[in-house]
């Protein structure tokens, strides 16, 4: 199973944090946690920045988040053009970590503003692609 399944169109196929896909398949979003010092990383990282340990465990996130900023994309790279316009957002999770993610088209655009509470949920792309979005 290659990591290119991650996202609407994945570019990277090989990585140490492949297990993220198994969590997404179960409908969960998971972060990595350093087994030595306990620092949590999202998006997941295989290597701890603080103690340089690479023994990690996975912790499931509740997905609660606050929007920091967003845009509505009209002009897109060719593979994404059929989906335009689409929303992209940056949000802060309850643990203080940040996530860059699409915003579900079901969210009312007029309501969007920094600070808005949203939830990070698993989303299905075309084929067997999996990712997360804010809804």
């Amino acid at each position: 199973m290659g990591f290119e399944k991650f996202g609407r169109f994945g570019y990277v196929s090989q990585t140490k944090i492949n297990p993220l896909l198994s969590y997404l398949e179960k409908g969960q979003i998971a972060a990595t946690k350093c087994k030595k010092c306990g620092r949590t990383y999202f998006p997941p990282r295989a290597d701890c920045l603080d103690c340089r340990h690479s023994a990690i465990e996975w912790v499931v996130l509740d997905g609660k988040s606050n929007l920091i900023t967003f845009t509505n994309v009209f002009f897109a790279p060719p593979v994404f053009q059929p989906e335009t316009p689409y929303l992209l957002g940056l949000a802060e999770l309850t643990n203080g970590l940040r996530v860059f993610a699409p915003i579900s088209p079901a969210v009312d655009k007029e309501q969007l503003k920094p600070g808005l509470e949203l939830s990070l949920k698993v989303a299905k792309g075309s084929g067997d692609n999996l990712y997360y979005w804010l809804e």
């Binding site: 609407r8 169109f9 994945g10 570019y11 897109a76 989906e83 860059f100």
Partner: peptide, 8 residues
């Protein structure tokens, strides 16, 4: 390219 480009 891992965490942002895959969203367009």
């Amino acid at each position: 390219v891992m965490w942002e480009s895959p969203f367009g």
